Amino acid sequence: MRGATRGLIAGVAAAGMALMPAVADATPGSGVTAKILAQTTVGGKDYVLREITVAPGGTTGWHFHDGTLYASVKKGTLTHADFTCAIDGVYKTGAAFTEPSGPNHVHVGRNLDTLPLVLEVLYVNPAGSPLSEDAPNPGCPFQ
């Protein structure tokens, strides 16, 4: 019986992995660390406040959000690009910005400075949604 149970668990795990989306096309971030400062769920929405640090030369990787993101730059400079490869914002210490939701708003954030970038970010997502969804590079010459 133990062998049958183990076989069943292995089969379910293998089937689950086969159904997972491939991440070969995703552009993972590098040099990014984050810590959750606060979180709650109200009225079917998750509110998550995080502090995100991007090392010099680091990138968030291409991604989008299922909800709206509100951010402020605590330290450093964020260079932000959209899916057209256009730099749609250079945000310095004290600046605030928003990122709209959905896969039609793919973007990347980069720290092109020699000092760490520190952001304070509030995610307002549908309850249970991930904070961000990886996306492939839309053809831009940078990550």
Results as ranks from 00 to 15, higher is better:
Pro136Asp: 05
Leu112Ile: 13
Leu8Ala: 12
Pro56Asn: 07
Val108Ser: 03
Pro126Asp: 00
Ser132Leu: 05
Ala24Ile: 12
Ala15Ile: 13
Gly16Thr: 04
Thr84Trp: 07
Asn111Lys: 04
Gln143Cys: 06
Ile36Phe: 01
Val54Asp: 03
Asn137Leu: 04
Arg50Glu: 10
Gly3Arg: 12
Glu51Arg: 13
Pro116Arg: 01
Ala38Glu: 01
Arg2Ile: 08
Gly43Ile: 01
Arg50Asp: 09
Val73Ile: 14
Gln143Ser: 15
His107Leu: 00
Ala15Gln: 11
Thr5Lys: 12
Ala81Ile: 10
Asp82Cys: 11
Gly16Arg: 15
Ser129Ala: 15
Gln143Phe: 08
Pro116Ser: 05
Leu112Val: 07
Pro28Trp: 05
Gln143Leu: 15
Leu78Glu: 12
Asp46Lys: 07
Pro130Trp: 08
Thr68Val: 14
Asp25Arg: 15
Ser132Gln: 11
Asp46Thr: 04
Pro28Glu: 11
Gly31Asn: 04
Ala15Asp: 09
Ile87His: 06
Ala86Asp: 10
Thr53Asp: 09
Val124Gly: 02
Thr5Leu: 13
Gly43His: 10
Ala55Asn: 09
Pro116Phe: 03
Gly89Phe: 08
Ala38Val: 03
Thr59His: 10
Pro103His: 12
Asp46Ala: 03
His65Ser: 06
Thr41Gly: 00
Val90Tyr: 01
Ile87Gln: 12
Glu99Ala: 11
Lys35Arg: 15
Gly76Gln: 05
Val124Ser: 01
Ala24Glu: 15
Asp46Ile: 02
Asn104Phe: 14
His107Ala: 01
Ala22Met: 10
Gln39Leu: 08
Ala18Gln: 13
Asp88Ser: 09
Asn111Ile: 01
Gly102Pro: 14
Arg6Tyr: 08
Pro136Arg: 10
Thr68Asp: 13
Glu51Gln: 14
Leu112Glu: 06
Asn111Cys: 00
Arg2Lys: 10
Ala13Asp: 15
Gly43Asp: 10
Asn137Glu: 04
Ser129Cys: 07
Pro21Arg: 06
Lys45Ile: 06
Ala4His: 06
Gly11Leu: 13
Ala13Lys: 10
Ala18Val: 07
Ala86Leu: 06
Thr60Asn: 00
Ala86Met: 07
Ala34Asn: 10
Pro130Gly: 02
Asp88Pro: 02
Cys85Phe: 04
Gln143Pro: 13
Met20Leu: 14
Ala55Lys: 07
Leu122Val: 14
Cys140Leu: 02
Glu51Phe: 06
Asn111Ser: 04
Gly67Met: 02
Lys92Val: 10
Thr84Tyr: 04
Thr93Arg: 05
Ala38Thr: 07
Leu8Ser: 06
Ala127Tyr: 07
Lys45Trp: 02
Ala135Asp: 12
Val106Arg: 14
Val73Arg: 02
Val73Phe: 09
Thr53Pro: 10
Leu117Cys: 08
Leu78Asp: 08
Pro126Gly: 04
Val23Gly: 10
Pro103Thr: 11
Ala15Thr: 13
Gly139Ala: 11
Ser30Arg: 12
Leu119Thr: 01
Gly61Asn: 00
Leu119Tyr: 06
Val90Arg: 05
